[in-house]
């Protein structure tokens, strides 16, 4: 098993109700799988699926990125709006 820390920001933090959480996961769990687990736990996150950026240890990742013990994960909601 591995343990990762998830950071929540902006609208995600409002839904989840906290800024960080620790998750213990099976070896080989990917970012995309962890996101699915979070959506199951917090159904209001579902609206963000498909319009997220993924990060592991402050670097952009992909849904297929495998997690490692001690990783810091962030699911980045769409960033600040605005028009040109």
């Amino acid at each position: 098993m591995i343990t990762v820390t998830v950071r929540f920001f902006a609208g995600h933090r409002d839904i989840v109700g906290r800024a960080t959480a620790q998750y213990t996961l099976a070896e080989g769990t990917t970012l995309g799988q962890l996101w699915e687990q979070l959506v199951a736990e917090y159904p209001r996150l579902a609206g963000y699926t498909g319009r997220l950026l993924f990060a592991v240890n402050q670097q952009f990742g992909q849904p297929t990125t495998a997690l490692a013990d001690g990783d810091e994960v962030a699911f980045i909601p769409p960033v600040s709006g605005g028009r040109r």
């Binding site: 920001f9 609208g11 960033v79």
Partner: peptide
């Protein structure tokens, strides 16, 4: 433009 696209900064 890129800050708006990818920088993890929210308003």
């Amino acid at each position: 433009d890129r800050i708006k696209e990818i920088a993890p900064i929210w308003k």
